[in-house]
Nucleic acid binder design. Sequence first.
DNA 1: AGCCAGTACCA
DNA 2: TGGTAC
DNA 3: GGCT
Length: 501
Amino acid sequence: MPTLSLEPPVTHVLASGPDRLRSSAKAEDLERHSCVMFLRYEWIEDSLKEGKLMPPDPYRLIVHNTSIEKSLTSSTTTTATVAVGCLQMLIAPIAGPQKLNHKGKEESGALGEVVSSMIGKEGKQKKGRGGESDSEEERTKEEDCRGDILTRYLGTTAPAAADALEPCSTSLNTHITRILWELHDLYEGVLDDGNRALIYRKVASEIDKLSYKVTSASQLDKMEGIGQSTRVKIKEILRTGKLEMLEVLLANPKVSVLQLFMSVWGIGPKTATEMYNRGYRTLEDLKRESSLERMPRLGLKYYADILQRIPRVEAVELEKVVVGVAKELYPGVLAQATGSFRRGKASCGDIDFVISHPDGNSHRGLLAKLVARLTDIQFISDGLQDRSRGPQAPGHYEVDTYMGLCKLQGARHYRRIDIKVYPIRAHPFGLLHFTGNDIFNRRIRELAKKKGYKLNDHGLFPTVGEGQNIRSGTESIPCATEREILEKLGMPYLEPHERNW
DNA sequence: AGCCAGTACCA
DNA sequence: TGGTAC
DNA sequence: GGCT
Ligand SMILES: O=c1ccn([C@H]2C[C@H](O)[C@@H](COP(=O)(O)OP(=O)(O)OP(=O)(O)O)O2)c(=O)[nH]1
Ligand SMILES: [Mg+2]
């Protein structure tokens, strides 16, 4: 267990299962000595539902023998920085996603169009949503020297233990990286420049890994990936403790509105801006807009549910349902939950499935039947995308995909579900792809390219031809397992939980 | 100056 | 083809 | 925004 420390902005720590904290004397200590409460997941749900913070006592995970401190009650606490999931990750408030800060709007000064002038770049990246930040299953240890191997192959190390990339409870440099991570979030989101976000992500995570506290920009001279512009920013941060540019951005009410709109599934920077320009400022406003398409409409309809992360315990049940039905329909089928669930996360943004069939034929039409059955039993409620890949896609790889919403009987929330069905030869590639995470995928694809391949979720294709007409072969190098794929790339096998990059 | 992963679905 | 998503 |  890493040392835990709670930064002041964190006031509530939520956990998914009643047992989560039972063995944690440390947590008890923390609650006693810092102004932090450890509460059940339901506290935030009910608080959201009620529109106010609920009294904590009924939700407490830890009941002290001694009297319960009353320092933080609903009357004194007006906002809560919430991290959902279990211990480690909860701890640091910075980085990445995990800000359920739907801050109230404050009309501040006009502030020229800082944003709009910066909007309209390039880049397509993942959408900022609830944070995938939890700890993982207890890890025994191992995975030591492989960091070096990975450094050699990828030019960076995978997070040693726990999730780096995450707020990083161990970082000595959050005074710098908290700001860089915010820039990352903004560029990945409203500023719509994924490539620039990439830079901030890289720099922030590198600085988070340092074993000393940075007090002078010159200490970063030899760190690669830091250029003129970033260096100047870091100097300003070290000098003043903040970054003017960021302050200006965050003070701009337009930014908050765009962020709010983009938190709706199916609304990206373009639509958010369009809606803003049409004068909309709240989600209620958006609901009145008829031009919205299916995805954002469902995104609005299920807004609160989709925002909720899926506690692992529930994900386990979801997996049972889908895998159970699949096996019922097709004995011998290969079906499993992938994505963040397979990577061992304590909570998941959605639930992802990869399915195939070893007989090399039964995958055809499988998805349609499966979805029909799951709809039948009232597990699947709404389809967001369907389309058993017909004439569409150029290569028509015989991959069927489904995206929709589902709910366990009696459950509190609808959940997003993705299912992909692959022909058996592509199964390991589909598994690798759909297990992710996305950063990991991008890194290994980059590596593949350097080594003269193209890697996607159907195969590993040698780059052929030369000069003007370099292309990818049409025949994938066959691989029967994820291990084989990584081997071909000269990488050691990484367990799913080691792919949380 | 071009790349930064590679692909699918929908309107 | 542009927008969004995985 | 940095690297090649
Ligand atoms: O831009 C992306 C998004 C996703 N993926 C892959 C990796 C990812 O793990 C998987 C499933 O996507 P999802 O969005 O569900 O991410 P996740 O890793 O499962 O996290 P979450 O807990 O948010 O669902 O698809 C990519 O390769 N690129
Ligand atoms: Mg997922």
